[in-house]
């Protein structure tokens, strides 16, 4: 894949949710810094002030703010559908949309709407949780149920501000019960590899042999998998999304028994299989947390398909 990304096919959208102060803005800024040629389009719906570091802003007009590296930002308010449509018409088209939900919004509802729009594909829902306050918030008489729903609707939960929490392990265990369908990633200052949040843009064949990202921390493992020839892509996707394997992400291309090529995307428990773009070569990249994701086991299971 080139820096231009896929110019055809549905535009991937990642919904970023979480209560006020959980670190959504910090995450967005961190991802922008890691964009590395990926054209991200940021949609924000918090009040007023542009939540983007001024060092990243290049120019602004009424509807859209141009950021460094070909990224853009706009606020959508009550007009999410037409704002998304506007982003899809930009030339060059963005590679990925990050749709930031307001602090009390339910990300599942937004994700449901994205799923209805033909030109877009829901990539996944990432919800931030403030390790210091999330349990108290989840018990709040007013917003408790909202916070619990937000967490339960996540594919990935970024357990943020772990450096400030007295017992991040306890919070993580609690989250595991509050959001059984989500993968949990611990973070400080919302610092996580962009490939874990938005999916890898690394082609199969370019991951380092030692399973590390070129430019990120040792906490993650990325591994390449040779999809078994003629495997059913949907069965393979289900396997990769199986909570037992604790993968955060998987992406790649698989040749179907009939010879056609399928694209496969996994975010936590969520998976999609679609037609691969022309010229795609078979291969899969998996991303997980070091010490959690058992790549060897996944390889063995995949081989039995």
């Amino acid at each position: 894949m080139t820096a231009g990304g896929t110019q055809s096919g549905p535009l991937p959208v990642t919904v970023v949710g979480g209560y006020l102060g959980a670190g959504k803005t910090t995450l967005v800024n961190s991802l922008l810094r890691q964009a590395g040629g990926r054209r991200l389009a940021i949609m924000v719906n918090e009040f007023g002030a542009l939540p983007i570091d001024s060092s990243l802003v290049e120019a602004a007009d009424d509807r859209i703010v141009s950021l460094t590296g070909g990224c853009v930002c706009c606020s959508y308010g009550e007009d999410m559908v037409s704002s998304l449509a506007m982003l899809a018409t930009l030339d060059p088209r963005p590679d990925h949309v990050l749709l930031e939900a307001s602090g009390v919004a339910l990300p599942g509802a937004i994700a449901g709407t994205v799923g209805l729009l033909g030109d877009f594909a829901l990539d996944g829902t990432v919800v931030l949780a403030d390790a210091e306050t999330v349990q108290r918030r989840a018990g709040d008489r007013y917003v408790g149920s909202t916070v619990r729903q937000q967490l339960a609707q996540a594919d990935l939960i970024l357990l943020n501000k772990c450096d400030l929490a007295a017992d991040p392990g306890g919070v993580e265990a609690w989250l595991g019960e509050a959001a059984p369908g989500a993968r949990i990633v611990r973070a400080e200052q919302a610092d996580v590899p962009i490939d874990a949040v938005l999916g890898t843009r690394t082609d199969p064949g370019t991951v380092r042999a030692d399973g590390r990202f070129r430019d990120h921390t040792a906490g993650y493992v990325a591994a390449e998998l040779d999809p078994p020839a003629g495997a059913d892509p949907e069965a393979l996707a289900r396997l990769l999304a199986d909570p037992a394997h604790r993968l955060l992400r998987a992406k790649g291309f698989v040749r179907r028994p009939d010879g056609s090529m399928a694209a496969l995307q996994v975010v936590g428990n969520r998976w999609t299989v679609s037609e691969a773009p022309a010229g795609a070569r078979p291969g899969l990249v998996c991303i997980g947390l070091r010490g959690q994701a058992d790549i060897a086991k996944i390889r063995r299971s995949a081989a039995r398909l």
């Binding site: 209560y19 006020l20 007013y142 917003v143």
Partner: peptide, 12 residues
Amino acid sequence: APEGLWYIPPEH
């Protein structure tokens, strides 16, 4: 039915 939606965070 579930208990409804907030349209503004209490802090705001």
